[in-house]
Amino acid sequence: MHAPAPAAWLLVALCAGTAAYCLLRMRSAVEEQRRTAGSEALMGLAMAVMALPAAVYDPPRWTWAVYAVVFGAAALRALWSARAGSAHHLHHLVGAVAMVYMAAAMGAAPAGPHAAMGHGGPGGVPLLTGALLVYYAVYVLRTGTRMVPATADGATAPPSAVAVRAGWGDRREVALACRLSMGMGMLAMLLTV
């Protein structure tokens, strides 16, 4: 994406760090958590590569078609998994569609390091970009609030015995932190489309 270099490097670090941690979360004993962590690791690594500044890595045009195909397949997989009614699989579907959309936007952008700097042109922000921005803004806020434990009287809740016994890769707050950082990264990347 075409963000200023310091912001791009911060985004690369955020996405790559989250992806690395998601790879470690794949060691979970729970199969569903392993699959989810694998999907999140793929998304994080792809976002990290996509966010690299153009001065460091200016991929050939065919790269964006490969991104579109890979994330098109990920979208189909998420759609298949979502048939059971899981909201999280629907989130993966939206994320994969967003990656296909960004890959198509990058592939259609004129060549050069300063092309497609996030200007919507005379029509402003495209409708799909706006819809994805709203979705990810709501997702980030909702996920952030879910990370704050609270009791009925508003005080901070102590960690439960179940959370203490769970392995570090199976802890709910760790998975939420990964999802929060991925959502913030996606929001930042969509701002540059």
Rank of each mutant, 00 (worst) to 15 (best):
G154V: 02
A104I: 07
S86T: 05
M184H: 01
G144M: 11
Y57F: 15
E31G: 07
L141M: 14
A20V: 12
S181N: 09
H114P: 00
M147A: 07
A20K: 01
A163F: 05
G123L: 14
G144H: 07
A13V: 13
H2A: 13
R146I: 04
M1F: 08
V66R: 02
A150I: 10
R25E: 14
L76S: 09
H92W: 01
P4D: 11
M47V: 10
L187T: 05
A41I: 11
Y136M: 13
Y135H: 11
G123R: 14
V174K: 04
M182Q: 02
R172C: 02
A5N: 09
G107N: 05
M147W: 05
A75I: 04
E40F: 07
G38E: 12
Y57H: 14
M182W: 04
L11D: 11
A131T: 08
A131H: 06
G44K: 12
Y57R: 04
R61I: 05
P6E: 03
V174W: 00
G107K: 05
R146K: 14
L191C: 13
A137G: 15
M189N: 03
T63K: 02
A20G: 13
A155T: 14
H88I: 13
M106L: 13
M102C: 00
L14R: 15
V162Y: 08
G120D: 01
V125D: 03
P110C: 00
A13T: 06
L23S: 08
L93S: 00
L14C: 11
Y101C: 00
V97S: 03
W168L: 12
